[in-house]
Design a binder for these strands. Structure first.
Lengths: 254, 254
DNA sequence: GGTAGGCTTCCGCTGAGTGGAAGGAAGCCG
DNA sequence: CGGCTTCCTTCCACTCAGCGGAAGCCTACC
């Protein structure tokens, strides 16, 4: 489109995506200059594109920078993760929370991370890092271990390459993690013991839709000593219910 | 960018937005051809743009068409309506629901519609049309009336021009609606009586953040005869709590 | 095996997009 | 109060990214 492009070959769509990708959990609000730096685009170009996105409602300008606009939020509500999984799972999460008062999570695998789709927690629950829409490592969360255990072999291998230590109890030995993942497949649930945050343990089970694990359901509690069996069976009931709801809705999804 | 453009003056960003805007509640899944028709773009152009969006994760291709991708959903979670309003309001909605078992709604005004940000409902609740992310008319919903009453005069005038009839009880006379909106300002709450759906009445109150109405909170019940006073005071407590949470968080928002 | 519907590839033309430079605007500091 | 910094906006000439018609491809259905 333009003659004097600094990086020929880059398309407008790619630049636009780069701008949007500049927003993340740590940077939900960015100034024009920050956007231009994070997207690695000249200020002028950023200005033009951002203006247009703002006019369209994709971004909103505030006194302290640009934020993601309502229009994009609304588009997000049309994504299958929201319309199918999250909407159907929500009542099950709430029922489970009501029975245990422990923080409940719904997550899917997004490449080599867990993407948290929903969370129900209260005042008394163990404080947790995860928020809706946030990404956490696969190897240090209950939900993550379940998803990784059921992931294709290539993904498992790739994930093993970067087992970052988060707490002293995080599993960083590939062999140890592999053994755990194999047990997840046979046992049907995964656990963590202070591997993501001190004082927080978790159990998680897979959610099946027609032979495939599409998501995982987990709880975070201070300790697993007493309640593990009870939690696992409760999670299984909920996960089974979610899976059935999923299958009975539109089936021609993939 | 291109010499032989059918509609000169249209930018790539505008075309891309048009493509994304082709998705809505009734059309969360579209084929390439449908996208090209709904966005009013040549098939070839659509193909190129959609391919790029898919590569970037903004859209996902399924066997039966394209859907909004995880990447866009995640971006949406960074919007202030989600991070601020919805996240802070969620516990209040749940508390209120637990106490009344009536469907609770959180909404903001988006131009001349209500945009529903959250909804908590159960099995026994009155069935309602609204879903998270959906748009409903301002004049036929409790939440909408509150938001319209507190909207700028220009918006009120504009909204008065199209008072579509939805049920036999929908208010379609501008004068009658105006009188109601004035009462909303003095009373501090709005009501509807089967104006949106038969068998459903609603009450709603504004949520204030520093002198400004930023959202509205409402319930839907089968009848208002008995419980109106109790519901209004409960809603006010919740709305006040949400408003205070909002003010105490980041203040440099606008 | 015909044909209809949807998707993909090809390719020459050109104006939309580019980004440096210069010009505000707003805030801070000595 | 004038200079300095930071951030945003406007201007403009150059040119290649984007455009879209045409043709080809692949299922699926009759």
């Amino acid at each position: 489109m333009a003659g004097n492009t600094s990086v020929p070959g880059a398309t407008v769509v790619a630049r636009t995506i780069a701008l949007l990708a500049a927003f993340d959990e740590e940077h939900p609000r960015l100034t024009l200059t920050e956007l231009s730096q994070r997207a690695d685009l000249p200020l002028t170009t950023t200005h033009r594109l951002v203006n247009e996105l703002t006019k369209a409602g994709a971004l909103t300008r505030t006194s302290s920078g640009y934020v993601v606009g309502q229009r994009l939020w609304q588009l997000g509500t049309l994504a299958p993760v929201q319309t199918d999984l999250r909407r159907l799972a929500s009542p099950f999460l709430h029922d489970f929370y009501a029975g245990t008062l422990a923080t409940v999570h719904l997550g899917v695998r997004d490449k080599l991370k867990v993407l948290y789709l929903d969370r129900v927690s209260g005042q008394r629950s163990v404080p947790v890092v995860s928020d809706i829409g946030s990404h956490l490592p696969l190897h240090a969360t209950g939900v993550g271990k379940v998803l990784l255990a059921h992931a294709p072999e290539a993904v498992r291998r790739e994930a093993m390459k970067s087992l970052d230590r988060i707490t002293p109890y995080t599993i960083t030995q590939p062999a140890q993690l592999k053994a755990q993942l194999d047990r997840v497949l046979t046992d049907g649930y995964a656990t963590t013991y202070e591997e993501m945050s001190i004082g927080g343990c978790s159990v998680a089970v897979p959610i099946w839709q027609d032979e495939t694990v599409v998501a995982a359901l987990g709880v975070v509690v201070p300790s697993l000593k007493r309640d593990k069996v009870r939690l696992v069976s409760g999670l299984r009931v909920a996960a089974h219910g979610i899976g059935r709801s999923l299958s009975s809705r539109r089936s021609g999804t993939r």
